[in-house]
Design a protein around this nucleic acid. Structure first.
Lengths: 215, 215
DNA sequence: AGATTTAGTTAGAGGCTATCACGAAACCTA
DNA sequence: TAGGTTTCGTGATAGCCTCTAACTAAATCT
């Protein structure tokens, strides 16, 4: 084999340990949030002493960034797998909701409260725009008949973020509202702001989705 | 004076020190987020040694809870001050946006990513329902003509959260969408998810608001 | 087999939360 | 105004944490 598709044993071991560290990190985040993530505790869980982890991640921040990257990647893949030809908003929406409920902290890592200083590395924002592209595809596939709103004409003049995507202004607007409205419902639901109230969040979600599809 | 409206000097001093501590805490939160809040650092800033702060707040968590309480209180007051007789959604919405932009971290303390274990004390949830009541008032004042949707009939059966408020189902639905849609736009804007894109978030916000008022 | 890279160790600096025991100041009361 | 009591702030300390540095031992490469 000319290609070392399977890497050297050391590299195999290394990636496997990195994976286990991330695994434990996800568990910690799920139970106590990202701020409670402790490299020391992970190391002890894995039977090694604190500083050993620094062979695998340069810092706590780098580990968290890696988790954020994985979260983005996971959502982008889910979206791409759901996306097909034609307008499949509903499928995307439900895929999003399933993905969010599957691991709320993972959702919050992507769309939750940011740390003021933090700036995502370029490859992460690239994944974000990949997600947006999938969404724009779905929106472009939907015909739009109603006349352009003022905001849509504003968007037509500020469409750099669509990154060359040929979506018409109405589709840009549709993608944005798809994003903000579903995020509005989802983030409040995941944050537990509906728990006291006894209605079914899933119905609110689909009601918003229906409204999105109707107009 | 039978009433000690002005307290004893000790109490005056005490509340003043508590206020200064919270002041510094807000500054720290604004620049580095709640997770970076350090009692030690605040103490040093105020010229006293670490443990002294524990005379004023039993723990870091208690201080943060107090900040959350103040944030809720501030929003409830803003809402109540904005609310008048009749349907003034637009005023409420813009008051909300101003309040949010005024101090994004304060907004996130209320509506942002929650710490998994954390449960807000009862008086805080009471303020939350006070906010909801103000919103329901505005929604009730608006006439609704369209036929009830399935979700609205569902809400009619699960309206405990309205806490005896006489709002009709359509108003319940309207209050929820008001909340989720505006939060959707605001939270993404404050979290910086629109920064790369060059459009004006204010226009998206008012576009969503207009849509809310139109239907 | 020897040289080199890498994984893991302990020690330690410096930060944090939080508790405790102690001195000192302020306050209340007789 | 003098004495007892409450309250404030202190330093010391325990126990976490992140992260660096020097060192050992094992695996890998030549």
């Amino acid at each position: 084999m000319a290609e070392t598709g399977t890497k050297t044993p050391r590299e195999r071991y290394r990636t496997q340990v990195r994976a286990e560290i991330k695994e434990r990190a996800w568990e910690q985040i799920a139970t106590a949030g990202p701020s409670a993530l402790s490299l020391n505790a992970i190391a002890k869980q894995m039977g090694m002493s604190g500083p050993a982890l620094y062979r695998y991640f340069a810092s706590r921040d780098e580990l968290i960034t890696e988790l954020i990257r994985d979260a983005y990647r996971s959502l982008a893949d889910t979206f791409r797998a759901t996306s097909g030809p034609g307008p499949n908003h509903a499928a995307l929406a439900h895929a999003l909701r399933r993905w969010a409920l599957d691991d709320p902290q993972r959702y919050f890592l992507v769309y939750g409260t940011p740390v003021p200083g933090y700036h995502a590395p370029d490859d992460v924002t690239a994944i974000a725009s990949e997600i947006m592209t999938t969404l724009l595809d779905a929106c472009t596939a939907l015909p739009s008949d109603s006349p352009a709103t003022p905001f849509e004409t504003h968007l037509e003049g500020h469409r750099q973020w669509a990154d060359g995507h040929p979506a018409p202004p109405a589709a840009l607007r549709r993608a944005l509202t798809f994003w903000t409205r579903l995020h509005g419902v989802l983030s409040l639901e995941l944050a537990g702001h509906f728990t006291g109230m006894r209605f079914d969040p899933a119905l609110l979600f689909t009601a918003e989705l229906d409204d999105l599809l109707a107009h």
